[in-house]
Structures are given as C-alpha cells and as structure tokens.
Simulated scan of single mutants.
Amino acid sequence: MKILLIGGTGTISTAISEKLIEEKHELYLLNRGNNNINLPKGFHSICADINDEAAVAQKISGMKFDCVADFIAFVPSQLERDYRLFNGKTNQFIFISSASAYQKPLSNFIINEGTPLANPYWEYSRNKIACEEYLMKMYREQGFPVTIVRPSHTYCEKSVPLGVHGKKGSYQIIKRMLDGKPVIIHGDGTSLWTMTHSRDFAKAFIGLIGNIHAIGESVQITSDETLSWNQIYKSIANALAVDFKPYYVPSDFLAKAGDFDFEGSLIGDKANSVVFDNSKLKRLVPEFQATIRFDTGVKECINYILSHKECQQEDVDFDKWCDKVINSLETALSLVKESGY
C-alpha cells in the first residue's frame, strides 16, 4: 500500500514507520527531516513543514495515497488544513486522538469507544475532542474516509513512562532512584493504569490501515495488561536494581503545587483508574495481541537510556521541586504530631 505519515519519527510513530518499511509498503514521511536518519532505509521523504500548507500542497501535487495518518495534529485548525490537503487524495485518513479525551471523572472504570468524551481538566484533551468532532462531521457530510485512533499511555525505548515528572522528561526520576532518593507517586499508588509498548501499538495500527471496517470508526489501542502505579514504579526500580522508595502525594496537592500542568495530566488523566476494553479493536484486527509485558519493556527502556547520553537530560529544577514537596509534607506531619490533640 502507498502510505503517508505526517510525522513518523515520534514515540508512537517510529515503530509504525519501521514496521511498514519491514513489510515493504510504499511509505512516505512528511516532516522536516530532523529524525529520519534514525529509521532504516526504504521510505520516501517529503521534506516540509506541515504547517506550510502551500508548500505541502505543491509537494504532494498529483499524488494519491491508500492511507494518510497525522501524528502531530492537536487542534481543529490543523485538521481543517489536512482536509483541504488530502480530501480526494486518500482512501483513508487516520487521526491520532487520545484516550485522555474520555469522560473525567469516570462513571465506569472500564473504558470502551462508547465511553463519553468530556475532560474539563485538560485543554489538550478538549482540543482532541474538538478535532474528532470536526473529522466526524466531514465524514458524515462529505464522505471524508476517517478513522480515529485513541492511544493511552504508549512508550518506546527512549523514555520511561511515569505519572509524575518534570518538563525535561523521565531521566531525573531514574537519577533519583539511582541516587537512593524517594520518588513522588500520585495518590497512594493503587490506582490502575495501562502501559502500551510502541511496537505492540504498531501491530494494531497497521491492522487498521486499509481496513474498510475501520472507516468512520473510533478505535482505542492499548495493551490488555492492567497495572497499579506501585507496580509500574516497582518495575522501574527492579530494572535499575535499586530499592523502591515511593513517597505518596495526593494528586490534587500536586496539581496545585507546581507549574507542571498536573491538573491536566493527573486529575484529567493518570489519577483515574482505567481498564481498557479492546473488544472492538480485536474484532477489526483479529490477529492483534499485545505481547510486551511492562516489566520486560521497561528493562529495554532503562538499558537504552543508560547507554545513550542524549537520553540523560537532567532536570535540576524538578529535582529541587520534588525535595521541596517531600520536605514540606514531612514538616507538616511533624507539626501535626507535635501539636497532639
């Protein structure tokens, strides 16, 4: 098949690009070319900024695709642009939305594609909902061949997936663990979550490409493995061969205590217990099965990060913030104990 990925070199999309190349599809990547060198040979590069609509229109003039997928669209105006560029030029358009768009607070911890979309806590999620609404309008009114994909927490080998981290990514938490310092876990660590390795995600995603039953549908792609946050962080500690030293902090406290948008990422997402029902995905892609267990996948992440200096970006400000939060709560606890009844 002739497939165009807008982006194609990110956390989710790199594994898809690699697998499409391996399967000998005619793959085109539309991006600025900054990270294409990390992919194996066997794809065509369309070097352009997707936001430069006129330049992209010129570069794809006369081209038609079996599938176009946009991995870097976040607001409706970007999908309006995609519609102008690709209407009549593709048999399928896949938009990567987000499972964070599902209703918060949840009415049922079991999530499927019929769960309402509503997230008052996170603008990112509300924008994804608006994107979905626009595309489905174009499907209903104009026959635009849309498939909406909702990933949850998907990770690759270059970053350890976490609940609480700073603006520079996950390495500082790894460093805290290696230094024997406690790490902040939201809540009491018992809420449920799902981690999906990008290679598992790629298998399901490719099964939706060219799938006539996926047109006009929304499909979530996650692993079936359910973990508590304690299990997630314990698996990371085990992979580092260090003691697990959690420090539990209420999610609403974290949401108010730092400039890290924890209200969105925690209250609007990770602080909620979720279990994903992937029945619809498995009807559409009967051969799909997520096979990379988290404790196995996270060891791969740790090994990669510790052997690649470029992944070891320290975040001194976040480290100091963690210490400040922990010390403040310990001081408050001491004062309460000293005051008696």
Rank of each mutant, 00 (worst) to 15 (best):
G187K: 03
I21E: 01
I185W: 05
S17F: 05
N303P: 08
R126M: 02
T291V: 12
G268K: 04
Q92H: 15
K324W: 12
C156E: 02
K309E: 08
G264S: 06
N211W: 12
I267D: 07
I232R: 02
V325W: 10
A255N: 09
I209V: 15
N87Q: 09
L240G: 03
T115R: 05
G297R: 01
A99R: 06
L192E: 05
N112I: 02
L5K: 00
G166D: 00
C67Y: 09
H153L: 15
E217S: 12
G88M: 15
I94N: 04
C322G: 03
I50K: 02
A69V: 12
L30F: 10
F205L: 08
F43I: 13
K104Q: 09
D224L: 08
T9L: 07
E330P: 06
H44M: 15
M63L: 14
G42Q: 01
R199V: 07
N278G: 10
V316R: 11
Q58D: 15
P40W: 04
I46G: 13
L162H: 09
S100R: 03
W193F: 14
G258V: 00
F262M: 03
G114Q: 09
G33R: 00
L335F: 10
F95E: 07
H165D: 13
N272S: 15
D224M: 14
K256P: 03
D252G: 00
P250S: 14
M136W: 03
L192G: 07
T147E: 04
G10Q: 00
S218D: 02
V219Y: 02
S191Y: 01
V249Q: 05
L162N: 00
K64Q: 01
G143S: 02
D252S: 07
V298R: 08
L30R: 08
S339K: 03
N119F: 08
T331A: 11
R150K: 10
E310W: 01
S97K: 10
A237L: 06
P246I: 10
R81V: 14
E26N: 13
S170Y: 07
Q289H: 07
A239C: 00
N36H: 06
Y304V: 00
N327Q: 13
C301I: 04
I236P: 06
N108S: 11
